[in-house]
Design a protein around this nucleic acid. Structure first.
Lengths: 370, 370
DNA sequence: TTGAAAGCGCTAACAC
DNA sequence: GTGTTAGCGCTTTCAA
């Protein structure tokens, strides 16, 4: 099964390879009758142009890259290919406190936006998710295949970033702006958390807040905490006096934190969490323990994931536009590709505070049965 | 900013381009001292090999493709790149019956598995999601860039599939097996639904079932319905006597169906839904209306999505291994690339019936407050 | 409107 | 162990 080439098509249609190329790239430059003939040959031979050859000749691949890192080391699955297992296991699936999988929602959403935007501009999208400590090879590999790549902030060491950006434009996604080397798209983490905290402070008159933070090296969490701090200071309180708990952005870890909190009896009036996962983890423990949310404790999150809309009570949160973040990253790259010398791009997307029952209490007389 | 090439590196290191290539591809064939020198030059020049050139010369791209189609036409977003919007909107977000977005969960999961498996075997992954009626261009484009591609069954017309498979191996994902042209990976839809239905029939002694189906052209739904039919027949009942409702795999559409059902007063003892989304849509309407699930009506789904584990009551369903489906697709492709002449691959992955409260009632005395 | 020909940057014999 | 060289399949001037 030897794949057909321009030469095959040209011979079959009785034209030169240049004409075949023209028919595919700039059809209007070719006489209609010739075009028909060539197209017919394309179909007859099952010709699909080689992107490698085209990329080499045109000096552009027509592909954009997206690189993320992830910590979800799923258990290795079977290696079998010829599975023919139509067996059906029936299990009584009782409620379980285990985290089934840390849904890599953030990635899914950013990817969705990236994919959409890339193809909309005539580019394909290549994705890579690094899971081990050494992203160098993967990032390099992608860099050689694309006309530009977007990278989750903090997922790639600076020296590697510098290396690949000598070949292609690199756009950083999320995190704080670092240096002036790359274009950068992010969301208003600080402002969002500040607005939410201010709301809790002023509307609810709280003073007894606890911040539940993510990983110490998370730039996003650092920004959110800073927003928390600014709001607290603006209210005339001392942020240093307010405890910070670490939930590592994990629902499971947050449950542990909540349990410890209950055990020690030191339960604050509000738990301001750095992401939704941790806030949900708090609810997982508090609600069954008989703690009333929000009457006894207010719980808030950050991100605006779907699960927070489905929880009981529904989760007050700060929604960040993840899909739009992916789109903005692709647009920034395309803009950079088109205008290599323009000044660095810094996009900052707006967020939205969503007040729901976990802070405000019942919105309406619920139509649900007790 | 002209990107460095092998020639630049070779000159800088004082070796031939062949040696540069060797250092990168088969380092052991080069003397250690030479290797060091070349590597140093690579770093110094910021050299990243061009995948286009390599792909051309080596006659393989090292990329695998994944193509899906989707109906989620999200509203077009802004075109702005230089967004600097740190404003924060604060909204009271009341419970809403609108479907925020049809979570394209299935795609996310299959993609996750595909991505993981491709890179694990040293291949990059290219993704494309077709949204309009004409997948030909996108599929062709991808096909020219990869060494093999996986395609969601039913998302690409046969003639296009045949066309591209003259160039590269194509693996079909999901759906029923059609012809012997391509390799195929899928899950035990029929067997899963048959097992679940049999459970409802025999353990719960039901006879009054209604099947809530997906789109008429969904091969997955067809298989599930067939499983339903076989179980019903095995129980000595006439499947033709049992109504079928159409929810189009949509949560919103299912709500409409449920409302109509309530309005007409024709409520069956069990609603067997073709996917989880529709089952959740049923719950959305039934629970607030005071219908007891499962005491009055049993509701079941199919897929095993996260939301079904978070609903009240939790949803009985048939879990299909979506991540593993993606992995299996990639493995099948790699196997085909390595052994072009082996017989067609047909993988059938097992499913698991998860019995939860929407059919079985409370599992344990719930520790939750009333 | 079409054809001829010169690369694009790399790999893989094959020679040394 | 290293260098030479012939393509890989396409795009793109430049002529005709």
């Amino acid at each position: 099964m030897k794949a057909a080439t321009v030469y095959d098509v040209a011979a079959h249609a009785g034209v030169s390879i240049a004409t075949v190329s023209r028919v595919l790239r700039r059809p209007d430059d070719v006489r209609a009758s010739t075009r028909q003939r060539v197209l017919a040959s394309v179909l007859a031979l099952g010709y699909v142009p080689s992107a490698s050859a085209r990329g080499l000749a045109a000096r552009r691949t027509g592909v954009l890259g997206l690189y993320f890192s992830s910590v979800d080391d799923e258990d290795e699955q079977s290696e079998a290919i010829f599975v023919q297992d139509t067996s059906v296991e029936i299990v009584v699936d009782v409620p379980d406190s285990r985290e089934v999988r840390p849904p890599n929602l953030y990635f899914d959403e950013v990817l969705r936006g990236s994919e959409r935007e890339a193809w909309r501009h005539g580019f394909a999208l290549m994705v890579g998710v690094g899971r081990d400590a050494n992203p160098a090879d993967m990032v390099n590999d992608i860099a050689g295949r694309v006309d530009g790549m977007a990278v989750l902030a903090g997922s790639v060491p600076d020296d590697i970033l510098d290396h690949v950006s000598r070949r292609i434009p690199v756009v950083l996604i999320a995190g704080p702006r670092r240096g002036d080397h790359h274009d950068h798209v992010s969301v208003s983490n600080l402002e969002g958390m500040r607005a939410l905290t201010t709301h809790l402070l002023s509307r609810h008159g709280l003073t007894d807040l606890v911040y539940v933070g993510g990983p110490a090296d998370s730039p996003d969490d650092a920004e959110r905490y800073q927003g928390f701090v600014e709001a607290v200071e603006a209210a005339g309180l001392d942020p240093a006096a307010l405890p910070v708990l670490r939930g590592e952005f994990s629902r499971v870890r947050a449950r542990g934190v909540a349990e410890t909190m209950l055990a020690t009896g030191r339960v604050p009036r509000a738990l301001v969490c750095g992401n939704d996962q941790m806030a949900l983890g708090m609810l997982d423990v508090l609600i069954p323990a008989g703690v009333r949310v929000p009457e006894d404790v207010i719980v808030t999150g950050f991100d605006g994931i779907e699960a927070g809309r489905l929880s009981r009570p529904r989760l007050t949160t700060v929604h960040q536009p993840m899909v739009e973040l992916g789109r903005a990253a692709m647009r920034a790259m395309l803009s950079r590709i088109e205008h290599p010398d323009q000044p660095p791009i810094t996009a900052r997307l707006p967020v939205k505070v969503l007040l729901r029952e976990s802070s405000e209490g019942p919105a309406h007389p619920s139509p649900a049965r007790p």
